[in-house]
Design a protein around this nucleic acid. Structure first.
Lengths: 141, 141
DNA sequence: GTATATGCAAAACTTTTGCATCCTT
DNA sequence: AAGGATGCAAAAGTTTTGCATATAC
């Protein structure tokens, strides 16, 4: 009921495809998925939803502020649940793990820099790419 | 002669397409171009170079460290001359202007954050998107 | 019942690749 | 002369769109 309310709140009808897609992001914390990955999960769950619909729904969710879209290295768009607070990303080049962080100091400096140069900041994206040294990093390149 | 030496230095034959492409980036400072834009400039200059070659040359230049590739919002890859020093980007959403900046404080914080979380930093990208208030901003959306 | 959403297939776009030909060394 | 580079066309990969049908309210 909560998820459906989310949809109504942003002016979208509560349809099955939209509920299922939203559920994928809500059900497991901190997921960063491409459209194709969302589509595959739906298929794996036995849902009969077209890839075109997935793209449409993802775009609607982004416009509604439910998801945010990122462009990491690699060209494909990646979506994640948009929790109110802004945050940036640490991406492991070995295993694809994505961690989020927020640093007040960096935020402050960015604002200062933009203002100094006469830019009104709308948005920003900071991606740090590296190798995580987690013991479970599968190093699948 | 300087440009040609650049190519030889990185182990690439000095061919006409490569010289022309490199010249586009060298001839005007601070350009950030998509493959398509590079291709159009070549055509405008009367060069008969295929788009496939442009893509191949851009990729080679990136691997050779002459150019760097970015993924701003919008999905297309954007290339710029790779001057040794790392820097980040301010992008105007109205006119597409791109300004570069470097901030020691931000760099330092990033490193700290990554290390805290067990990441060995390979690379990072910081894009600030906003509206520049320059008088010549054509606001062409 | 009406407006909107979906599925499918086709299209649009960006980027890559195969192959015959051409150019650099 | 030999190997690598280019152009063209075709393919591959991602995302969008047209249209008839199905669904939510």
């Amino acid at each position: 009921m909560d998820v459906m309310n989310n949809l109504k709140r942003v002016g979208l009808k509560s349809t099955l495809p939209r509920l299922k897609v939203l559920n994928i992001f809500v059900s497991e914390a901190g997921q960063h998925l491409t459209a194709e990955e969302v589509y595959k999960r739906l298929l794996a769950d036995g849902e009969d939803i077209g890839l075109a619909t997935v793209y449409r729904v993802l775009t609607q969710f982004e416009q509604a502020g439910l998801l945010s879209r990122h462009h990491f290295e690699g060209g494909k768009a990646i979506f994640e649940l948009h929790h109110g607070e802004h945050h940036d990303h640490l991406v492991c080049l070995q295993c694809g793990r994505v961690e989020e962080f927020y640093d007040e100091e960096i935020e402050k400096r960015q604002k200062q820099i933009a203002e100094q140069r006469g830019f009104r900041v709308q948005d920003h994206a900071l991606y740090i790419y590296g190798d995580c040294t987690k013991t479970d990093c599968p190093h699948r390149s």
